[in-house]
Structures are given as C-alpha cells and as structure tokens.
Design a protein around this nucleic acid. Structure first.
Lengths: 409, 409
DNA sequence: AAGAATTTGTTGTGCGGGTGGACAAGTACG
DNA sequence: CGTACTTGTCCACCCGCACAACAAATTCTT
C-alpha cells in the first residue's frame, strides 16, 4: 500500500526520469508554488533539465505555469516563472475516522482541502455501517469536483492498528473492531475501484506534521496522539517508522507502573492507564460517556487541578522513555495532549526533563501540532498522494477520471 | 560520518553510475562471491551493463574474475563467471572497544577477518592510554597487510553514546568517559589521517547481524546488547535507526519499576537496574569486580536459580515494551543475554509473550546472534566500509595505500 | 532615463550510460 | 555428437542530462 524503499536494485535511465519527475512534483507539493530557479538549486539539476521536467508535468495536467511570485524579489535578473498546481489537477480523498465522527475531504496537491464534510459515527457501529456513512460523505465531497480532475486514491486514518501489507485493521479497540477490511468495505459501498491506503492516525499525524506542519525540515520527530487510546507516529531519518507489520509506535502500552491499574490489553500499569482518555476523564471528574469530547471539556478549564498536574507529570515521564528510545528532535503533542499542554505544559516539560537522559534531552523540543486537529486528515491525504511522487505517470494511469459521474450511477 | 540518505535531490547520470557501481559492490560484499548472472537478476539491469560495471570494479582492483562456482549447477547453459573479492583489495580496520578489552581486526570486503589482535584495556584508563593501546593493536594488525591493499577507513565500536554528527563519545558510563573524541585520539597516536567512523556497540551489532548474521534479509530487527549497561541497536526498513543525535535505542533506561532501585542515570527502576550486568551479578552472587567477565561465569552454570529466572522474566517484560514500540520481526539477544538465553530462555520468552501486544508479538522471533561475540566488531567494519558502497571511486580516492610502510615511520 | 549587470528561459548539440540484438562460448541433456 | 539453453562480448542505438550560446526580463548604476 505504501511506497517501498528500493533495495539493491540498479537504476536505469527510465528510473532516473521517473525519480526526477516525482521528486520535482514532491517539491511543488511541499511548497504549493515554487519557481523553476528554486527547483534548479534544490534538485541540483541543470536549468534545461528542470525545464523539460516542468514541461512534462504541465502536459500531464498536473501543474501550470504561474506568473512569478510578485512578492519578495531579491536582486537583479529575470524573474523565474513559477510552477503552480493546476486547478483541475489530480486530487485524493482523505478520511479521518475517529471514535465518534468521521471527517472526509477532497484534497489536492499542496495539501489544499478542496471540499470537506463530516458526520457523527454511530457508537459501537458495525464496520459496514460506518463504511456506508463514509461513502456518503465521499459522494458529498466529490459533488463539485471538476470532471477533469483525476482521483488518485483514497487515504484513511484509523484509530487502531493497521497491517501494512494489506491495510487490514487488526484492532481498533475504541471502535471494537477486529480484523476489518475497511478499505474494501468503503470501495464496495462506493462501487469504485481506486487505490486505498490505510494507516494509523498517529502515524499519519506524524507524516502530515513532517510534510506541512511544525515538523517541516525536521527528519526525526514523533507525533504522540493522546486520545481514548495513546499512540505515536514516528518519523526517523525522514521516513515513517512502520515496523515489520506496520504496528510500530504503540507507546500506549509501555510499561509504566507494574503496580498500576489493569489495562484492556491484559497487563497492569500501561502508560495509557495513567494518561489515556479515561484516566484524564477521571482526573477532571468528567463522566465516562463524554470521553470522546474530552478536548472540549479540557478547553473549558482555565487552571489545572492537582490531579491533572499529576497526569501532566505522568505524561512527561512517559515521554522520557520515548525520547530515550527514539532520540527525536521534536515531539508533537496531538489529540487531548494538545489541550493538556495548555493547562499543564510545565508539568509535562518538567516530567520529561526529570527522567530523560541528558544527551537525547538536550536536542528535543515539545510542541503543539501545526495543523491543529487536521493532522491525521492531511496525513491520510499524503499517503494517498504518495504514488504520485514515486511515479507520476503511472499514478495518473491508474487514477479515476470524472469521478462525480461515476458515483452518480 | 555515516552515509546520508539523499533527500529531494535529483539524479543525474553520473549519480546513476555511482549508485549502480556501489550497489553492485554491496552485493559482492554481501555474498562474498557472486556470479554475473545473479547480479543481473538482482539488480534488474542488462547483461551488458553488469559486464561494464564488473569491468570497472576489476580495473579499480576491488574484484577479480573467478571461475564459475563448481558446486550446485542447475540446468543447461554456459556457466556464469564469478565476481570475487580481490586478494589485495580494499580493507578497513575494525575496533571493538569493550569495558575491559579491545579487539582490533583488519577486515576485507565480504566481512573477512584478515588479521586480528586483542589486548586488555586498563580499568579506568584515560582515553589517551586506551587510544595508544588501540593504536598498537592496529599496527600489529596491519603488519602483514599487502602493500597494494588500500585502507578505506577505521570503524570503532563504543560501549556508550556516540554523537552521529562528528563521532564524539558523549558518554561511555562504564569507561567513565565524557565527551571524548576517541577517533581523533587514535588517529593522532597512529600519525595517520583516514576516515574514522564511530558508533554504539549495539547499533553496530544490529548492523552486522543484518548484513551477515541471523538477520540477513530481515529489514526490521533489534539487537539488544546486555552488557554492563543495556542498549539496543535498531534496524527498521533496512536502515539504521539513529535518531537526531545518534542516541536512539537507549532501552536500558526505559521506565521499568518506578519503585525500583536507583540507577546511575539519576532515576529509579530503569530496566537496566533489573537486568543489567550488576543486577545479574547480584542474582547469581557473583563478586562485583567480575561483572566484566559475566558471560564466562554464566556459561559455567547448568541450571538457573530462581533469582536468575526472575531476571529472565524481567528481560522478557522489558522486551515486550520494546517489541510494542518498534514491532521488529527479529530480536537478537547479544552480550550476556546470549548466555542467559541458554539458561532462562523460556522465562524470557514467557515474559515477552505475557506482556507484548498480540499483533506485534505474532511476527517477532527471539534469537541468538549469528556472529557470536563478533557482532560489534564486524559492525564496525561495516560502517568503515560503507563509503565504498556509496561511491567506490571516491572512497578509493581517499583511501590510504601502503599503510604498513606509513605506520613503520 | 538609458545602458550595464544579472539572472533566467530557450534552443541545439554533445556525451555518458543503459538497452537490445547478433553472435560466440560453454555446459547439460538426449 | 548434436541440440537446447544460458551467458559473455561487441555493436549500434536511444534516452536523458549537461553545457554553451542567445534571448528575455528585471534591477542596479550613472
């Protein structure tokens, strides 16, 4: 489902062209708009080569020539023509499946959200019910799409463990799903056949923050998502850390206190039992049925209770283990941790500083997501767009044209 | 010091040649000897291209033509000429710096140990003293090297945290070193100037086991090194996990029991306090001054005590956190854990199975190192050889010829 | 305000490197 | 001993990037 890193293969000239075209598109995607001159220096290729690549991208209908950015011009010389994303260029569908609601968006290159819709998801809903309501949202979002704009794929963010080989949802504890092939369900409900990619929400949060959030240019970062469950997405050396099956980053079940409370995983004292949604709800005396809207409740607070401060310290202590293990440059606090950071940020920082080793500690920084609560959604768009950067021509070949008409039938 | 992964750069044809030549050499290195036909199918390039690359490698003096492997021949057809490593081809110096002894070897491509020497290291020795004795071992090991064989570099395995940007030893607790530039010390003692790479011993263990040990072909593995301190080397997606500063994998200071014993890092109940060398020594009533030779003591046991079995369980419990975090396909037990696995392997496995999540657990396997106690040494050779696989021509350009004569002066 | 300086787009040519076909070489099988 | 099969070698070829020269567009200078 995701792009494989090549191993041991040789490079022929066809692969060179593919790689250069994809890399150029990745730069356009990352910057939104970029000049040919910048591309030349970024990619280390000749002006004429860039011109050729840009021309091919235009003839594919992906980009279009833009007037030079009139803004900050520096120095003399002919202004460089910009490469902009075509208005009816390729797009993807991004789905952020939450415990209580689903958000669906049509997203173009550059991470632009073109349309957006959301709906509550039935609590304890069967997978096919959720699939149907997601499909309805997708139809809604595709409504106004230009016919020329090809749909490259669908990306889905899942609050659970996703097998990377085939995108099967192995376990989504808070949806109570086991071994659900949600990609297939959605495709069946749509009556379409396009590439579908699924991944864990924290993994996608990390990816999005790395591509266009606070983590741009930072190659070693961790996105910690504090929701009903606690998970992490890890980017190391600029690449997603997936693990053998795709389950890497399950930090919620780090051993935290062997004498602690029982965890739904069967052990005692997992980190999640101390800092997960239910623990936080308890700390602020919030009724258990409102755990899914915990962030709203938390945002209503203006000063933290001692219990909440203890939770903050526990978050910091857990982060210390994570920082020691991964040595990231950046830790992004997503989910409820976003609200908690406003309240007990100093306790989190103190807990981390107290327990992390000096060397990894000195280079790490804690921040809030740059994309707010859209991290996972935009990450879903990223994995769906990924084939375009690996091989633009091939990805457009498998893309679907005139999706709206196809979905109407 | 290590090869950077390229990011966002374009590929020109010069880079293609570099990459293909390096990749071909990597295959030769991995297999020791390999036929041109195998290279053709492995690299997906044309016969003629492979022939050209092999020819270049031969003219560089790296490889030489070998008669077809007379062994298992299958099917008809002309036997494919082999590509073998040249007798006086490039080599590196590998250094495995331990707490109580240093092992030095001259290693050629294919991981062949050509010469080898070792000596005890003074306890609480100053860095310059250790550097001098390592330099003496290097001179010894280079003694019989053929004059034509160029020295590509020196790789050093360090029992501590090494900053990846410059190879500075930030902290080697059991050598009591802080911020030691050991690479510079050794070079100064030798009076040479060659590329030196340093890395953590567990990281190098992982690398070596991945390249030529039990982890060949397994792209997600962890080498856990139980020595006086406990550390891990992580390979994910076929690449070393380094982290921002190079300190990734410090699993010894995972929070294990908040009510546990104080750790030298300043916290309580780190995993290392339960399963580190000192804890094991205590469990088997071994005098503290023999901790460095703990493996010999352990190998003398034939049945485990209840204390030791509890240690085994604690190892398993800690591994569970690691498995949950990284989702490796393989966990290699190095250092004292190697001996312990013989004694309390079932307890380790049980502890792991008890605490790990089902999904990551089902695909993971525990094993002993395939390279015995040479993992770190061969890993040191690997990082020193690495430049050859990135750009053989450039690496040979900076290599040192006739080292023996230069060291004699 | 006009020319110089600077940077970029465009075009044509050249070169490096992988491809593919033809043929020779070497082995297994009948 | 001849056939089938695979591989090595040589050749012409194609593709893609680099380079140089020129035109275009803007800023800086006088």
């Amino acid at each position: 489902m995701t792009a494989q890193r090549r191993s041991g293969l040789g490079t022929n000239q066809e692969a060179v062209r593919r790689h250069n075209l994809g890399t150029l598109l990745r730069h356009v995607h990352g910057a939104g708009q970029i000049s040919r001159a910048e591309l030349t220096s970024l990619m280390g290729l000749n002006r004429s080569t860039i011109a050729g690549l840009v021309g091919e991208l235009e003839s594919l209908g992906i980009s279009e020539r833009a007037t030079p950015a009139g803004g900050a011009r520096q120095g003399a010389g002919r202004p460089s023509a910009g490469v902009a994303i075509a208005a009816d260029g390729p797009c993807v569908i991004a789905v952020d499946l939450g415990v209580d609601r689903a958000v669906v968006a049509r997203v173009g290159l550059g991470g632009r959200v073109l349309q957006r819709a959301q709906a509550p998801v039935p609590v304890e809903g069967e997978a096919w019910q959720v699939g149907a309501s997601v499909a309805a949202l997708i139809r809604e979002v595709v409504e106004d799409a230009p016919a020329a704009s090809p749909l490259v794929g669908i990306g889905i963010s899942v609050p659970g463990m996703v097998r990377r080989s085939d995108g099967l949802i192995r376990l989504a504890p808070n949806l109570e799903w086991h071994d659900v092939s949600f990609g297939g369900i959605v495709l069946a409900a749509l009556g379409l056949d396009v590439p579908v990619s699924l991944a864990n929400d924290a993994d996608l949060g990390a990816l999005a923050e790395h591509t266009r959030g606070v983590g741009v240019g930072i190659d070693d970062l961790i996105y910690v998502s504090g929701n009903v469950g606690v998970g992490a997405g890890v980017i190391m050396g600029g690449h997603r850390l997936e693990g053998a099956g795709g389950y890497a980053g399950e930090v919620g079940h780090l051993r935290f206190d062997p004498g602690g409370r029982p965890c739904h995983c069967g052990n005692r004292g997992c980190w999640e039992t101390e800092v997960g949604g239910h623990a936080i709800a308890e700390a602020i005396h919030c009724p258990p049925d409102k755990v899914a809207q915990l962030d709203e409740v938390l945002d209503g607070f203006d000063s933290p209770s001692p219990e909440l401060r203890r939770t903050g310290t526990a978050i910091g202590h857990g982060l210390a283990s994570i920082v020691n293990m991964f040595n990231p440059r950046l830790v992004v606090l997503g989910g409820y941790f976003r609200s908690l950071h406003q309240l007990v940020g100093t306790d989190i920082e103190a807990g981390l500083a107290d327990r992390a080793l000096p060397a990894p500690l000195e280079s790490v920084r804690l921040t809030l997501p740059g994309l707010g609560s859209d991290s996972a959604l935009l990450g879903a768009a990223e994995i769906a767009l990924e084939p375009l950067f690996v091989d633009p021509v091939a990805a457009l070949g498998t893309a679907l044209v005139d999706v709206r008409a196809r979905l109407a039938g």
